[in-house]
Design a protein around this nucleic acid. Structure first.
Length: 282
DNA sequence: CCGGTCACCTGAGTGC
DNA sequence: TGCACTCAGGTGACCG
């Protein structure tokens, strides 16, 4: 579910709430949620103190001080993953959809346990030491963050690809953080068609796209993300969905020109554009 | 290299 | 109420 602004919101809340606390116990309720070596998962995390929580694209990285040195918990929420605070439960008595749990010390007011909740169970948790983390990140090949990438590098990376602009922006190795909502919103704001060949973009066009995407990301972070079906941060949902111009607005009128917003499929993903403002389906 | 499709999972919404 | 069907903010594997 979450894209850059939602993951940023979750990360900032996790950092504020969990930094300085120690993991006393680990419970893995749904085994497949752990994608690193299962036997080492709890071993690496139990007794580790949380130093910092940061975002890498749409990934969340917990930096820990483990009993045997630096340890890392790397997570991806995919479509429906959430972190929530709550009570620690006995084995077999966890509430529905809780897939893993971490008992924290000292406990938080909202509960002693950091719970990983995931309805569709697409999300994954991985525990690493420093060397394993480095290897994993190298293989991931995440591109730079859209909030900090230099315009020249953004232009170079986007135009190096032959594919359609929307698909290129969703490719996390080009730039890491866009998802379906913010691609549609950014392309509308920059007046670019999702079907444009990425390599055909001029320097002025990629510059405009980056400025608009950044403005949208920054505003959405301030609004604590977009809440549609089931995104829910540690402190509730966001409100940026109220500012969506095209996403989820098929059949409504374009806020700029008044034409009807069209929905169609690009690369298997639901896509929303104003045919007038964005130059049609080309 | 590129696009299309499916798999991974569950629940919400819609139409009959 | 029940049932069938579509859709969902992500990613990776596979195929032509």
């Amino acid at each position: 579910m979450p894209e850059l602004p939602e993951v940023q919101t979750i990360t900032m809340d996790l950092d504020e709430l969990t930094t300085g606390r120690t993991i006393l116990e680990v419970a893995v309720i749904y085994d497949r949620i752990v994608a690193s070596e299962t036997s080492r998962f709890s071993q690496l995390l139990i007794g580790a103190a949380i130093k910092k929580v940061s975002r890498l694209g749409k990934w969340i990285l917990f930096n820990l001080n483990g009993p045997a040195g630096p340890t890392f918990l790397l997570t991806h929420l995919k479509m429906t993953g959430q972190f929530v605070l709550g009570p620690w439960s006995m084995a077999d008595s966890w509430p529905p959809h809780i897939q893993a749990a971490f008992l924290l010390d000292p406990p938080l007011a909202a509960g002693p346990a950091l719970l990983y909740y995931d309805i569709r169970k697409f999300g994954r948790l991985r525990a690493f030491d420093s060397a394993e983390l480095a290897t994993f990140l190298t293989e991931l090949k995440l591109g730079p963050d859209p909030l900090t990438v230099l315009p020249e590098e953004f232009h170079r990376r986007v135009t190096a690809k032959k594919g359609r602009l929307k698909g290129v922006l969703l490719d996390q190795t080009i730039v890491a953080g866009f998802g379906n909502i913010y691609v549609d919103e950014s392309l509308f704001a920059a007046r670019l068609s999702p079907l444009r060949s990425a390599s055909s973009l001029t320097r002025a066009e990629t510059g405009r796209l980056l400025i608009e995407a950044r403005r949208i990301f920054v505003t959405a972070i301030r609004e604590r993300g977009s809440t549609t079906s089931n995104y829910h941060g540690l402190k509730g949902g966001g409100t940026y969905q109220l500012q969506h111009q095209v996403y989820g607005r098929a059949g409504n009128s374009c806020p700029v020109c008044g034409a009807v917003i069209t929905r169609f499929i690009v690369g298997g993903r639901s896509t929303h554009i104003c045919l007038i403002c964005q130059g049609g389906k080309q």
